[in-house]
Amino acid sequence: MSESLFAWLLIAPAIVFIGFIVAWPLVETIRLSFTDADLGGENWIGWANYAELFSDPKFYDIVWRTFYWMFLSVILKLVMGLIGASLLNAAVPGKALFRVLVMPPWVIPIAIGVIGWKWLYNGYFGLISGVLQNLGLVEDRVALLATKTSAFYSAVVTDVWVGTPMVTLFFLAAMQGVSRDLYEAAWVDGAGRWYRFRRITIPQIMPVIVSMALLSAIWTFNSFEIIWILTEGGPRGATTTLIIDTYKVAISSQRFGEGAARAVVIVILLAIFSLFYLFFLNKVNKRYGAK
């Protein structure tokens, strides 16, 4: 058996596997996007789905909202993660306990956590509304998920709550990998806490920050269950991101062809975003000396 044939044999299972779970569904989605497929069958209609999509002003709103949702949520997760990791990394008594206490949002099933948040946000029996009223800060009950703006930011808060623990733990792991000598050397030279954080911690964990930002961005972009459980994309589309819109069209309305066109747009947008990001990551790694 030739060496190259043997090599192909070794990677064949992986190729078959990827073919089934990635390549074939992707090709099939692209094909569907050029049809008017629904429960009644499908006809080839060329670019009609895309033409309709790009001529609909509401679609641009959704794209814009999706990116806004993504950037806002990711930035909050990164900032909270950095703060949390720094606190957990500090030499305080009982830090092992705190490290465990960070975990629940990540560990408990998302659906259960989000339903908890839905209760908090509820205008009739929600904790937030109740506390605000009892403190006299608001006159009437506040149903946070009922108005467009508050529903959007409430969804962001919940998404940040779910996403922060993982970011925190990754940052913590990266911080613990920074040599103690670097801090001591800086301390001997007179660098204060903030100076050390800015000029040692941040640059040292920069590759991890950038990687986490990319992963978190993709997950947030495609975050489905949090929004769906909270608001199903409402009120009046205020929390409808691309993924929610795609689901509504393809699954709820069973217009598979139109849904597939949206899915293809998501893939292209994320691919462009990721390419740009990997380029950026490469630069960061060069600059900050990651291997």
Binding site: S179, D181, A185, W187, V188, G190, R199, I200, Q204, G289
Partner: peptide, 21 residues
């Protein structure tokens, strides 16, 4: 007194150089 006010400088076994600088 903190290290910086003692008028000392220290060279570490690991050199403690900042890899990104």
């Amino acid at each position: 007194e903190p290290p910086v006010q003692r008028g000392i400088a220290m060279v570490f076994q690991s050199y403690a150089l900042y890899p990104h600088l």
